[in-house]
Design a binder for these strands. Structure first.
Length: 863
RNA sequence: GGGCGCUUAGCUCAGCUGGCUAGAGCACCUCCCUUACAAGGAGGGGGUCGGGGGUUCGAGUCCCUCAGCGCCCACCA
C-alpha cells in the first residue's frame, strides 16, 4: 500500500477510457507471458469478427462477456492468452469490396500493376456494371480495405476496454492462417478425411459457387402451384402439381408413393413431358407424399434435394437445364427431338429462371397442358445465408471433409467430443447434438471464389491433354502457403501448366469455415511455434454466439478431433443475441442498428459493459439504454464512495488498526459471504450473477453501512467516537472498498482502476482476486444480524423523516424500537452508530413479537 | 413434425439445489441541496409469479398437462 494518496476533489468518468487505455498499453497490463506453463495459463479462442462493415452492439455485448471472464481468471492468477482475430477471408469481404469500389474479379484478366478502381462506384446494383479486374488486383483491394476496417475495429475494442493482448492479433487471410489451413487440409487428405467428388450440390447462382449445408437458410418466398398434364399413349394424362414448371425440360420421371392405389397401375409405364414430348417413366418411392398436390410429382435434375435423393435411389439419368449463372443452358438436352430442341432453344435457352417460368407457363397454356389457374402460395425456399437468389442444384466436382454426415461412427465420436466440453449454459449442447444428428452429407469445403485460402493441390494432365482429377499433386509442407494457380507443384515447372504430361492448379479456395475452424491452431502457433502451442492448446475457452454452433463450433471440433484427437477447448460459453427494444432481432435492413461508438461515448464504456454483463449467459437480451444509465450511476458511485472512504480523516488509518466494532465486523462477515458467492458465480462462467450479487451488496454498503458508521469514522464526539472506534470503522471501510473494487473490476475496468490508482500500487487488473478465507480471518466472526437490524431501524427513521417532509439531517427526539429479544440484543451492539446516524437524542427498545419503530422528530427550530 | 428455451410489477429482468409478509432497475408519485455523490439522495404506490392438476408441513422454485412467444432443425411436388 502506498502512503501517498491523491484523491481528486471531483472524480469523473470522463476521459478514463483514453487515459487508462494508454496506461495499460504502456505497462503491458494484458501482455501474455509465454514463459508460464499450461496449468498456469488460461487460453481463449476468441471469435474473429467478420471484417465486412462495422461492429454492432451485439459484438460489444458478447465480447464484454468474454472479457469479464478473462479479467476474473487473470485476477485469479492465471496468465491469460487472450488474442484478437479478424475474419477478413471470404465472401463478405469480396462483396464489400465489390460494393465499395465498384469492381468485380475476372480471373481471366491479367494482373495490371497500375489498376485503379473507379473514382465513383457505378449506381445501382447491376453486377454487369462493375469494373472487371484480375484476381490479384482484386485480392489487393481486399487486403487494403480489410486493413482499414481492422484498425477501426481495434480502436473500438480498446475503447470498450477488452483486455486483449494486441500483439497476438491475427487475420484469417494472413500467412499464418493460410499455412495452418492448408497444412490441416493436407493432413485430412493424407488420412482420407478430405476427398473430392462429382455430384449434385447446392449452388448459389449470384456468387456462382457451391455452398454447404451449414450455410443454408430458409426464406419464405411467393410461388404458385401449377397443375400440368403429362400425356399418356392411349389413355388419360397424369396431372402433377409443381411450383417449378420451368424445370419441365429437366424432368426425368414422375413419382408416387408405392401404396398409392391411384397411381399403382401406372408404375413403370411411360408418360410424355408436355411441350417437349420426352418419354419418362412413372416410378414408386416412399418419399412421395400422397397428400401433397395431386399425389404424384415430377422428378427433375434438379429442383430440390428430394429430387437428388430420387435421382440417386431410382437410378435416373441427368437432364440438366439450369446453368451455373442461374440461366437456362443454351443447348437443349440430347434426348430432345429436333422439334423440342427448336422450341427450347428459341423460347427458353439463356432466359433467367424467372422469365423461363413465365414463358413456359404461357406455352403450357397454349398447348392445353395447364389445368386451371396457378394457385399462389408462399413457401420456404433454400438460400445461401449471405445470398439473395434461391439456391439451385447443379452437378460439379467439389472437395469435402468428412463430418459424420455419412458415417455413424464418426457422428457418435463427434457427439462424444461435445460431451467433453462444459457448455455455458448447459442446454446449448443440445443444439450441437441436434445439428450433428441432422447432418445429411459431408462438409463441402470448396468454393469457386477468390479471396480465401487456396485448396493446395494440383492435378495431373494426361498425354491427351485431359485433366486427370484422380492424379492429385500436393506441395511440400514447408512450402506452405501455396497458390496452385500461380505456383507449380513439386517436380514441375510453370511451363508445364496446362500442357500434356503437365499439371493444372486447383482454382477453388476453401470455405471460410475451413480456415476459421482452425482458429485455436492458427493463433496458438501450431504451424511454427510448437512451444507456444503446447502451452495454450487445448484451449480453456471458446466464446461464441449460438447462431454459429452448427458452423464454427462444430467445424472446430471436427478439425481438432481429426488432427489432435481431442476436444479443442474445455469450456464453450455461448452468448445470446441483442434484440432491439421491440424484441426484434437487430439488423441493418430494419434500420434499428445502434452504432457502438455512439453509445460508448454517451454512457461511457463501464456503463455499456454493465448493461452487457447484465445479460445472462446464452440469453437473448434487449438493447436497454436504461440499464446503461444504471451502469453509469454505478460507476460514478464507485468513484464517489472511494473518494469518501479514502478522504476520511487527515491521514490513513494506522496499518495496525483493528476491526473491533460489532457493526464493522458484521459488515465484513457479510462481505466474506459475498466474495464466496461472486467467486463461485465466476467459476461457473456466470458473470451476470457475480455482478448482481456484488452490485446488491455494494448499494447496501453505500446506503446503509456507510451511513451507519459515518459519524464514528469521522471521530464525532457524540458517536462513541474514540480513536479505536474510528480506526475500526475506517479500516473496515478500506478493507471493504479494496474487496469491492476488485469484485467489480471485471465489469467496470475503468472506474475501478481509477479508484484503485488513488491509493494502491499497480493495476487492479493484476491484483489478486479477493480470497474469502482472507476476509473471514480479518473479522469473519462478525454477526450479520447486528447490521441487519441496524439497517432496518435506520431505514424506518429515514422513512419517518421523508414522510414528514424534513431533511434526513433533521434531529430526532426519540426512537423506540420494538422487536424480539434476540434482535434487540444485536441492535444494542450497534446502538452508538444507529443513534448517531439517526441524529437521535435517545434510542430505546421494547420487547415485541414483531418489528416496529416509533420515531418522534425534534421540533424544527425556526430560522 | 422434432428439439431447446422463455412466460414473475406498465417496461427490462433477478429469484441457484423448494423455507419467514415475492425482489431490483427503469418509468410514475412524494419528499430532501445532508460536509462522498443534485446527470444526486430518501421514501411510496403497483404483482392471484401464463392456465389447470399433482407431490410436500410448505411451490415462483419439483412433476404432469394445456396455452402463448422465441430460437434451432427437418419438410418444402
Amino acid at each position: 500500500m502506498s502512503p501517498e494518496r491523491s484523491v481528486p476533489d471531483k472524480p469523473s468518468l470522463e476521459g478514463l477510457e483514453a487515459r487508462w487505455g494508454e496506461e495499460w498499453e504502456r505497462e503491458g497490463t494484458y501482455r501474455f507471458d509465454r514463459t508460464k506453463t499450461r496449468d498456469q495459463i488460461y487460453s481463449v479462442d476468441t471469435p474473429p469478427p467478420t471484417v465486412s462493415g462495422s461492429l454492432h452492439v451485439g459484438h460489444v455485448f458478447s465480447f464484454t462477456h468474454t472479457d469479464t471472464i478473462v479479467r476474473y481468471q487473470r485476477m485469479r492468477g492465471r496468465e491469460c492468452f487472450y488474442p484478437m482475430g479478424w475474419d477478413d477471408n471470404g465472401v463478405p469481404t469480396e462483396r464489400r469490396v465489390e460494393n465499395f469500389y465498384g469492381v468485380r474479379c475476372d480471373p481471366s484478366l491479367p494482373y495490371d500493376p497500375d489498376f485503379r478502381p473507379p473514382a465513383e462506384p457505378p449506381k445501382g446494383n447491376r453486377r454487369d456494371d462493375l469494373v472487371r479486374c484480375s484476381r490479384r488486383n482484386f485480392i489487393d483491394l481486399c487486403f487494403g480495405l480489410t486493413a482499414e476496417d481492422e484498425q477501426a475495429f481495434e480502436e473500438l475494442w480498446r475503447h470498450l476496454g477488452l483486455s486483449v493482448d494486441w500483439s497476438l492479433t491475427y487475420t484469417t487471410i494472413n500467412d499464418q492462417s493460410r499455412r495452418a489451413s492448408q497444412r490441416a487440409f493436407l493432413h485430412n487428405l493424407a488420412r482420407g478425411e478430405a476427398y473430392q467428388s462429382e455430384a449434385p450440390t447446392l449452388w448459389d447462382v449470384r456468387f456462382e459457387m457451391a455452398v454447404s449445408q451449414a450455410e443454408l437458410e430458409d426464406r419464405e418466398q411467393p410461388g404458385a402451384y401449377h397443375q400440368v398434364a403429362f400425356g399418356r399413349d392411349g389413355g388419360d394424362p397424369l396431372v402433377i402439381d409443381t411450383t417449378r414448371p420451368e424445370l419441365i425440360p429437366a424432368c426425368v420421371a414422375l413419382v408416387a408413393h408405392p401404396d398409392d392405389e391411384r397411381y399403382q397401375p401406372f408404375f413403370e409405364t411411360q408418360v410424355r413431358t408436355p411441350l417437349f414430348g420426352v418419354p419418362v417413366p412413372v416410378k414408386a418411392h416412399r418419399l412421395a407424399d400422397p397428400e401433397k398436390g395431386t399425389g404424384i410429382a415430377m422428378i427433375c435434375t434438379f429442383g430440390d434435394t428430394t429430387d437428388v435423393t430420387w435421382w440417386r435411389e431410382l437410378d435416373l439419368p441427368v437432364r440438366a437445364v439450369v446453368g451455373r449463372n442461374g440461366r437456362l443452358l443454351p443447348d437443349a438436352p440430347h434426348e430432345f427431338t429436333d422439334e423440342a430442341t427448336d422450341l427450347y432453344e428459341s423460347e427458353l435457352a439463356g432466359k433467367t429462371l424467372f422469365s423461363a417460368k413465365e414463358r413456359i407457363v404461357e406455352l403450357l397454356g397454349e398447348a392445353g397442358a395447364l389445368r386451371g389457374e396457378p394457385r399462389k402460395i408462399t413457401h420456404p425456399v433454400k438460400f445461401y445465408e449471405k445470398g439473395d437468389k434461391p439456391l439451385e442444384i447443379v452437378t460439379s466436382r467439389q472437395w469435402y471433409i468428412r463430418n459424420g454426415g455419412r458415417e455413424d461412427d464418426l457422428r457418435q465420436a463427434l457427439i462424444a467430443r461435445g460431451k467433453e466440453l462444459d457448455w455455458h449454459p448447459g442446454y446449448m449442447r443440445a443444439r450441437y447434438e441436434d445439428w450433428i444428428e441432422g447432418l445429411n452429407g459431408d462438409w463441402l469445403i470448396s468454393r469457386q471464389r477468390y479471396f480465401g485460402v487456396p485448396i493446395p493441390v494440383w492435378y495431373g494432365v494426361g498425354p491427351d491433354g485431359e485433366v486427370d482429377h484422380d492424379t492429385v499433386l500436393v506441395p511440400d509442407e514447408d512450402a506452405l502457403p501455396v497458390d496452385p494457380t500461380s505456383e507449380a507443384p513439386p517436380g514441375f515447372d510453370e511451363g508445364q501448366r496446362g500442357q500434356p504430361g503437365g499439371f493444372v492448379g486447383e482454382a477453388d479456395i476453401m470455405d471460410t469455415w475451413a480456415t476459421s475452424s482452425l482458429t485455436p491452431q492458427i493463433v496458438g502457433g501450431w504451424v511454427d511455434d510448437d512451444d507456444l502451442f503446447q502451452r495454450v492448446f487445448p484451449m480453456d475457452l471458446r466464446p461464441q454466439g449460438h447462431d454459429i454452433i452448427r458452423t464454427w463450433l462444430f467445424s472446430t471440433v471436427v478439425r481438432s478431433h481429426f488432427e489432435h484427437d481431442t476436444a479443442p477447448w474445455r469450456h464453450a460459453a455461448v452468448s445470446g443475441w441483442i434484440l432491439d427494444p421491440d424484441r426484434k432481432k437487430m439488423s441493418k435492413s430494419k434500420g434499428n442498428v445502434v452504432t457502438p461508438m455512439a453509445i460508448l461515448d454517451q454512457y461511457g464504456s463501464d456503463a455499456v459493459r454493465y448493461w452487457s454483463a447484465n445479460g445472462r449467459p446464452g440469453t437473448d437480451t434487449a438493447l436497454d439504454e436504461g440499464q446503461m444509465k444504471v451502469g453509469r450511476r454505478l460507476a460514478i458511485k464507485v468513484l464517489n464512495v472511494s473518494k469518501f472512504v479514502l478522504k476520511l480523516g487527515d491521514t490513513p488509518p494506522p496499518p495496525d488498526a483493528r476491526i473491533t466494532h460489532p457493526v464493522d465486523r458484521a459488515m465484513i462477515a457479510r462481505l466474506a459471504t459475498l466474495v464466496d458467492q461472486a467467486t463461485s458465480a465466476f467459476e461457473g462462467y456466470d458473470y451476470a450473477r457475480a455482478l448482481e450479487r456484488t452490485e446488491s451488496f455494494f448499494w447496501w454498503f453505500c446506503d446503509d453501512h456507510v451511513e451507519l458508521v459515518k459519524g464514528r469514522a469521522y471521530g464525532n464526539e457524540d458517536a462513541a467516537g474514540d480513536a479505536a472506534g474510528s480506526d475500526s470503522a475506517r479500516a473496515a471501510l478500506e478493507e471493504a472498498l479494496g474487496v469491492l473494487l476488485r469484485l467489480l473490476a471485471p465489469i467496470l475496468p475503468y472506474a475501478t482502476e481509477e479508484a484503485w490508482s488513488w491509493w494502491r500500487e499497480g493495476s487492479i487488473h493484476r491484483a489478486p482476486w479477493p480470497d474469502p478465507t482472507e476476509v473471514v480471518m480479518d473479522a469473519g466472526d462478525g454477526d450479520p444480524l447486528v447490521t441487519e437490524v441496524a439497517s432496518a431501524v435506520l431505514s424506518e427513521v429515514r422513512k419517518a423523516k421523508t414522510e414528514a417532509g424534513v431533511s434526513l439531517r433533521a434531529d430526532v427526539e426519540s426512537v423506540v424500537v420494538r422487536d424480539t429479544p434476540e434482535r434487540l440484543a444485536a441492535l444494542a451492539r450497534a446502538a452508538d452508530d444507529v443513534q448517531d446516524a439517526a441524529k437521535a437524542a435517545s434510542v430505546s427498545t421494547e420487547d415485541d413479537d414483531t418489528f416496529s419503530v416509533s420515531v418522534v422528530l425534534a421540533p424544527v427550530a425556526e430560522g
